[in-house]
Amino acid sequence: MDLLDFARGPALYFALAVFALGTLWRLLGILLLPWGLIRSPAREGSPSPFSSALKGIVVKLWPHKEFMAGGFFTFINGYIFHLGLAIVVFLFVPHILFIKNLFGISWPGLPSNVIYAVGVITAVSLIAAIANRMTSPVLRLISRVDDYISWVMTFLPVLTGLLAVSHLGARYETLIALHILSVAAFFVWFPFGKLMHAFLFVFSRAMTGVRFGHRGAQL
């Protein structure tokens, strides 16, 4: 078995298994705790918990202008790399074919040169994020090892992907193998660190949405 076969065979399946089980374990470990739902009567005319939850999830997409002064870069840069990652991961034709092979579903993609440009922007944005983390006194103080590991796990697939597409540094097959291995590493790390926020944000925002909605308070 060569490196590429190993990467898209056992390595990837192992990673996906860790990802699925670990994510499930962590989510259940949180959601199976008691919910403590005994609450004082809701404010008259307050929305249903369901719509408060939805509102919580949606409202938090955009910061209040009051917090923009200090948070503008974090907000803009955060949007850039999240959108960039989503575009590159889900709209690059080879990725779509790969997903089709695994799960049997597919959708149309974007031209490669567009994806390449988005990939470069994403990489630059990720570098800006880590530079900010390492220089801002607040971020330096609150950062954990997790933040750096999660960054590496996110950055490597982008980097190896860009190298593979530009045939830079090694044989194409080797680059693809490294790319898939970096994605496997991403999946293995996912349940254990902050990458989990990709799932947790829904619960976290919804819960606060319900708490505030119940009180008739604005989120």
């Binding site: 919910w35 910061p63 948070g71 607040v138 947790l200």
Partner: peptide
């Protein structure tokens, strides 16, 4: 002791973005 699902979800969700600093009068 009283850890429930809501507090746990909140303890688990931080991405260390630092946005909260901008809100706190003591930090500002």
């Amino acid at each position: 002791r009283e850890f429930g699902a809501i507090a746990a979800a909140h303890m688990e969700s931080c991405v260390r973005c630092g946005m909260c600093a901008n809100a706190c009068h003591f930090y500002v």
